[in-house]
Write a protein that binds this DNA or RNA. Structure first.
Lengths: 138, 138
DNA sequence: CTGTGTGCAAAACGTTTGCATGCCT
DNA sequence: AGGCATGCAAACGTTTTGCACACAG
């Protein structure tokens, strides 16, 4: 995700509006490495804007996804998580507490696409999910 | 997953019972490489047992998970999928039709765990999810 | 006969949608 | 003023649960 400032420009240039709720969501996401769920974001926004709705959270996340500003992580069986870091990287998830942590090792040169994938697919990318138990849960 | 025959023994040795519905679910899963969802299984069982319920499907899948006979795949954002092949392997999912296909390449020697993972986690394994568009959808 | 499994109905859960109102630009 | 965003309530699809009944062992 870009900085909140640049993001503001991006939205405006798309004819979208900057509301206090959106601004707060952007700030929550900026440099956020905790991979929050929609509910995590909702709870934080609610502290400042008690009447905020899940609708707004989900709609804003959808907008950010479409702009390529956040990635949706499908790694926790219970819920989706959102990641403002859209550069190539991977994750570990603790099977106990479900905490998700970044893995920045670059595996792109190691993970060669099998021939059938090259032939039958337009591969857009890959994601490595490490599963384990974190120190606190162990 | 073991053969239906052996699986029957396994269940019995755990004090569990073999019902026609379970037997059919086992047969549907045996050697199944299509990564069915609960609904896929439900629909197939329903052809023979029209009164079967989702309860039975989900309970049986839960049992099989606990016995380590099937893996739950968290790769499709819409629903969970089940895989009777519990040996280490990976998957491609078509972003358009959501079809999931096996990738049997062995990446275990290539994907080295970063130091922090070795230190802070008991890593149980990893899963590579390839994302792309399949030939039919392209 | 005992207890595990089934199936119905309802609940739970995360997420999405319709619609009237609000407010950014 | 116009149109996009908000928020409520309701709907949605998937998965889970409570409970009475069925049936495998």
């Amino acid at each position: 995700m870009e900085t909140v400032e640049k993001l503001t420009e991006t939205l405006r240039s798309h004819g979208m509006k900057i509301t206090p709720q959106r601004l707060m969501i952007f700030k929550i996401l900026e440099d956020n490495i905790s991979h929050p769920s929609a509910e995590d974001i909702y709870k934080k926004v609610k502290k400042t804007y008690p009447t905020v709705s899940f609708t707004t959270i989900y709609k804003t996340l959808e907008t950010l996804k479409e702009l390529g500003e956040v990635s949706e992580l499908i790694i926790d069986e219970d819920r989706k998580h959102y990641d403002p870091n859209t550069t190539v990287h991977h994750h570990v998830i603790c099977s106990a507490c479900k905490k998700i942590v970044d893995v920045f090792e670059d595996f792109s040169s190691l993970v060669k696409l099998p021939d059938f994938l090259k032939k039958d697919y337009t591969v857009l990318g890959f994601q490595i999910s490490f599963y384990g138990i974190c120190r606190e849960c162990n």
